[in-house]
Computed example of a mutant assay.
Amino acid sequence: MSSLVGDRRVDAVVAGRARMVLWRDEGRSAEEVAVLAGVSRPTVNTWVRRYHDHGVPGLADRPRPGKPTEVPGSVRARILALTRMTPPEVTGLTHWSSREMAAYLASHENIRVSHNFIADLWRAHGLQPYRHGTFKFSRDPAFVDKVVDIVGLYLNPPDGAVVLCVDERTQVQALDRTQPLLPIDFDRIEKRTHDYVRHGTTNLFAALDAATGQVVARCFPKRRGSEFLAFMKTVAAAYPDRELHVVVDNLSTHTADEVKAWLVRHPRIVFHFTPTGSSWSNMVEIWFRIITRQAIRRGTFTSVVRLTRAINDYVTAWNTDAKPFVWTATPGEILAKVRWVHTEVRKLLTNNDK
């Protein structure tokens, strides 16, 4: 039973039901398990009873009566095509979840399918858009030139120059996480979303040295062109008299007028813009994922000051033993993959239109 909880191949819903059974077997009451799982007490009792009656198979959904709803092939093709593309800018998403895609389809394309159907379709086609390794389409007309430029910097940097990967994480939250104490006062518990308290946010700017893995980072209360310029001045001061090639994306803060004017006055600093919707081409994104996982996501911060201090401490520790990330894919390999994916999607759309 415990193997179901930690196995990524197991449906998340089934894993949640298995977790309820395990908690009950540990001696927790149905009321306590209901609070931990965010469900009602009858729901807990139902899945515990089904497990005792039918074992692990009892945790799966039973077949529903009636003829299953037919989803047209064109809708399936549209879902698969969207899955392989970067979410539209209107969503504000970096990657799809089944629920977010279902909501987008309903509100923007008048397609109504359940998130469970989308998840099943992804499993049937081996797609995992929530995994960072999933490739995304870019609509940038200069995609090829930008990939060749940036990957060329990683694989063959100019002699004597420093290649820096720069980006920011906005609205990093200072959260004070709370846990109900036992015995639990169930009358005071409303929703699981109330298990933490927000104490404000900060904006984390970071520059990763592609050759050494060293990181320069600063936190700002706002994210505007002025804050980005202040950060870039800090970065430039850390590399005096060196030619700097800076990989950035096309955010408005990176192309503000004051930033452009500053670059004109400092010709030793050159910006290289990533293709639209291709954050994977900026290696600082790897570092952002690491600090989020290791220092931020599960942390408890009662103020923005404490959050900022934790980030600064992490950066200091990182730089004491920094190692570079190694980029191995050539521009030719990346572009060949893009052409292959485009071809497969066109085949899929053509077959489903017949």
Rank of each mutant, 00 (worst) to 15 (best):
L208W: 10
D209N: 10
A210L: 03
A211S: 15
T212A: 10
G213I: 09
G213Q: 08
Q214K: 15
Q214F: 13
Q214S: 14
V215Q: 09
V215P: 04
V216S: 11
A217T: 00
A217Y: 00
A217F: 04
A217N: 00
R218G: 01
C219N: 03
C219T: 03
F220Q: 02
P221M: 06
P221E: 05
P221D: 08
K222Q: 09
R223N: 11
R223D: 05
R223I: 08
R223M: 09
R224T: 15
R224E: 14
G225V: 01
S226Q: 14
E227H: 14
F228P: 01
F228A: 04
L229K: 09
L229Q: 06
L229M: 08
A230I: 06
A230K: 08
A230Q: 11
F231D: 00
F231A: 02
M232Q: 09
M232G: 00
M232F: 04
K233E: 11
K233S: 05
K233P: 00
T234R: 07
T234F: 05
T234C: 04
T234N: 03
V235K: 02
A236S: 02
A237M: 04
A238K: 08
A238S: 14
P240C: 00
P240W: 07
P240K: 06
R242M: 05
E243T: 12
E243D: 12
L244D: 06
H245E: 02
V246T: 02
V247D: 05
V247Y: 03
D249G: 06
N250W: 11
L251Y: 12
S252L: 11
S252I: 08
T253I: 15
T253A: 15
H254G: 07
T255P: 07
T255R: 15
T255D: 08
A256V: 14
A256K: 14
A256N: 14
E258Q: 13
E258T: 11
V259Y: 10
K260C: 12
A261L: 12
A261N: 06
W262K: 06
W262A: 06
W262G: 04
L263C: 12
V264M: 15
V264L: 15
V264P: 12
V264I: 15
R265F: 10
R265V: 04
R265T: 11
R265S: 13
P267V: 06
P267R: 12
R268Y: 06
R268W: 08
R268N: 10
I269V: 15
I269N: 08
I269A: 12
I269K: 09
V270E: 07
V270W: 07
V270S: 07
V270M: 04
F271I: 02
F271N: 03
F271D: 02
H272T: 01
H272M: 00
